[in-house]
Design a protein around this nucleic acid. Structure first.
Lengths: 145, 145
DNA sequence: TTGGATGCAAAAGTTTTGCACGGTT
DNA sequence: AACCGTGCAAAACTTTTGCATCCAA
C-alpha cells in the first residue's frame, strides 16, 4: 500500500498503541481517516472489499473494537439508526449536525460548552469528563424542497 | 385501574392521538410518566409483569413504537448501551448527565443552547429543529471512590 | 517462533413481523 | 361490526464469540 504523508499519522498511532500493522487494519484506518462522516461497520466492510481486499465483517468489528479501546477511533450512536457509527478520533471532541431528511451528517468543530460544564459541575456535584452534542435539522439542500 | 390526577395528562394524550385506551398501553404510559430515568423495553416489560399484568415483550415494543410516532414518548440511545431507552415526552426538551461508573442517568432541565442554535444556523445553512446533549462524568457517590 | 489477526460459522442479543385471536370503540 | 391491540413464534438484524489457521514482529 502506498504510504502518503497524511497516512503517517495513523500509522504512527497504530505503532505506538502496540497494535500490529496489518493490511485490513491499515485500510480501515485509512478509510476513517479520510472520511468526514462517521461510518458504520458494514459501510467500512464494503469499502474495503471494493477498494482493497476481501475481508470478513467480523474482522471489521474486531478491529473497530480494538481501535476504539486504544482511543484511535470513536464509536457513536444516533437515535433512529440501529447501527453504531465510527470515526477517526482526531483528538479534541467534535459535534454533529444531522439532516432529518437526507441523513447527511456534518461535523462541527467549535464547541460552545466549556463554561457550561463548569456551572453544571457546581450544580450537580458530578465530575464531568465529556459530553456529546448532536444537532438535528434540515440541510440547505433539503430545506429548499 | 385507579385514575389519579397526574394520570389524566397522558390519558388525554392517548385519546387525542386517536389511540385506543388499553390496559397495557395505560400501564406503560403510567410507568414512563412517573419515572425520572429513561427505561428500556425490557425494564418496562418486567415492571408491567410485576405490578400490573402478564404482557408480551413484543407488545411493549409495538406500543413504544406507536407512542414514539405520536410524539408521546421519546426514544433515546446512549453509546455503550445496545438497548434503546424510552421516556415520557414532557414537552420542552431535556438533557442528560450519565455516570460513567454506575451508569445512573440524571436529567438536566436547563438548556444552554438557544443562542448557539441561531449562530450555527447562520454558519452552516441548516435549519435546526432539535438537538441532543448528553454529559458524561462521575456522579458524586462514584467520585468519592 | 510466538502471540496477535483473520475467516468462517454459529451464537447471542435486540427488535420486528406474520398470523390468529381478543378487546375497544 | 370493524378495526385495532395482543400473544406467540419465528424471523431479521446487528454484534460477538469459538476455533482453526495465518501472518507480522
Amino acid at each position: 500500500m502506498d504510504i502518503k504523508k497524511d497516512q503517517k499519522e495513523y500509522l504512527g498511532a497504530l505503532k505506538s498503541s502496540g497494535l500490529k500493522n496489518t493490511k485490513h487494519r491499515c485500510s480501515l484506518l485509512e478509510i476513517l481517516f479520510n472520511e468526514s462522516q462517521p461510518l458504520n461497520a458494514e459501510e467500512i466492510f464494503f469499502r474495503i472489499k471494493e477498494k482493497t481486499a476481501e475481508i470478513n465483517l467480523s474482522t471489521v468489528y474486531r478491529n473497530l473494537e480494538v481501535l476504539v479501546n486504544k482511543g484511535l477511533v470513536t464509536k457513536l450512536t444516533f437515535p433512529g439508526d440501529s447501527k453504531s457509527l465510527y470515526e477517526y478520533n482526531k483528538m479534541g471532541h467534535r459535534h454533529y449536525i444531522v439532516c432529518i431528511s437526507c441523513k447527511k451528517i456534518m461535523t462541527i468543530e467549535h464547541c460552545p460548552l466549556q463554561e457550561y460544564e463548569l456551572s453544571l459541575e457546581k450544580e450537580t456535584g458530578f465530575k464531568i469528563n465529556a459530553h456529546k452534542l448532536v444537532m438535528f435539522g434540515y440541510c440547505p439542500e433539503c430545506n429548499k424542497k
